[in-house]
Design a protein around this nucleic acid. Structure first.
Lengths: 217, 217
DNA sequence: CGCGGAGTCAACCAAATGGTTGAGCAGCGA
DNA sequence: TCGCTGCTCAACCATTTGGTTGACTCCGCG
């Protein structure tokens, strides 16, 4: 009752158990429920509200094997009224992941290899309505702002991701509900910003700069 | 003393805590040490032997952020005399990962999203000197034997690597001292074997199958 | 020795991609 | 309100890539 109530969302039982064990060591933080994917998370938030035990913070993974992914779930959660803050806890710190999460309305972004104390602080911040970024993530965002060179727009990063999956211009156009012409326009901008002149080189540079994740993960 | 002594090797504190919590629920299994990467694992095994508390089973992740990766560590462990069985516990079940682990001498391969009971059984099997494969992994191996994929030749892999760097056919031709025509011939073979029809998709698939390393490394 | 696979190359055509110019629209901050 | 930026689209052309066919060499294996 007195503590911050947390809902864990991760498809790995091992990770859920780890977070539960880790957070249970801290005063004032109570893990009151778990969910294995985004859809289950939405159900849990709903169920707990009806029980009069609303969730204070949702701790959410991004990559969710089979079910609804973390970004989608975050977006849907934020559409509730008085939505709980969503703290992303994931493995990767690429621009694509970070931007997508922030855009969806996440109030924090932490990495799984973070020390327990850092995760605790992030949960407290989120519960207090503040944002909490892992130092690595914060550094990336700062660099993004400071750096006059790259600064790809969110839309461009989105295209880059589809590019890296091996999709053709036509496929990308269809997927994003825009014309091939627009896809080409975006690509030209991407090439210019990355200093390359074809799609494979763009993928290579973007992967190296951790703007996107490689296919392997 | 009565239980099976386990060494956890994983670079994520969260996962180590989860495994520790999960395994501590089981009778007869004792987590006696942890390591954050392969090199630390080797040191731990050594140290515990000197203390007269040898490790019965090593529970090892494959992807280890910075330090020595799991395959390498497994190989080195197997070179000890009376080596402890190594049970791989990882996120991905790609052919390349599985084959590399088995080749390195792992005595089991489990996935992190496995239910606790399955992990327990695997630890017991490994301790008893038997092999333990997750059902998904076993299925993959069976399928592979029944339906072997055409292997890429060394030359084709070499091309693939240059492809992934973003080079054009002309550039690749120059680099390898062959004609563009030859490059195209190789590419067609690569596409056929990978089941794709353009270079970016080839890179995507090859990265996913770990035939090549992604640019990010 | 002959067979087959791997690697090399050429010629040709279809399709995708790259590059350029120009332009309309929405949102945002000065 | 104006100007800027980002997103959208079109038309056009050059270049690259994809796909096919056929052919030559080298090399290991039965």
């Amino acid at each position: 009752m007195s503590g911050i109530s947390v809902l864990l969302v991760d498809d790995h039982p091992v990770v859920r158990a780890g977070l539960r064990a880790m957070l249970s060591d801290f005063e004032g933080i109570d893990v009151i429920a778990e969910a294995a994917d985004g859809a289950a998370a939405l159900r849990e938030v709903d169920r707990l509200r009806l029980l009069g035990e609303p969730v204070d913070v949702v701790l959410m993974d991004l990559q969710m094997g089979a079910g609804m992914d973390g970004v989608t779930a975050t977006g849907k959660l934020r559409q509730l009224n008085a939505p709980p803050p969503v703290l992303i806890l994931t493995t990767y710190d690429t621009d694509a992941d970070i931007l997508a999460a922030v855009e969806a309305g996440a109030s924090g972004y932490m990495l799984k290899d973070a020390p327990p104390e850092q995760i605790r602080q992030a949960v407290l911040s989120a519960a207090a309505g503040q944002t909490a970024l892992a130092p690595e993530v914060a550094a990336r965002l700062m660099g993004r702002i400071r750096n006059p060179e790259p600064a790809l727009s969110a839309r461009e990063v989105q295209l880059l991701e589809l590019l890296a999956k091996g999709m053709t211009n036509k496929g990308i156009a269809k997927q994003l509900f825009i014309s091939e012409a627009t896809v080409k326009t975006h690509l030209v901008h991407i090439y210019t910003k990355l200093g390359v002149d074809n799609r494979t080189a763009a993928i290579s540079v973007a992967t190296k700069k951790r703007i996107i994740r490689s296919a392997g993960g």
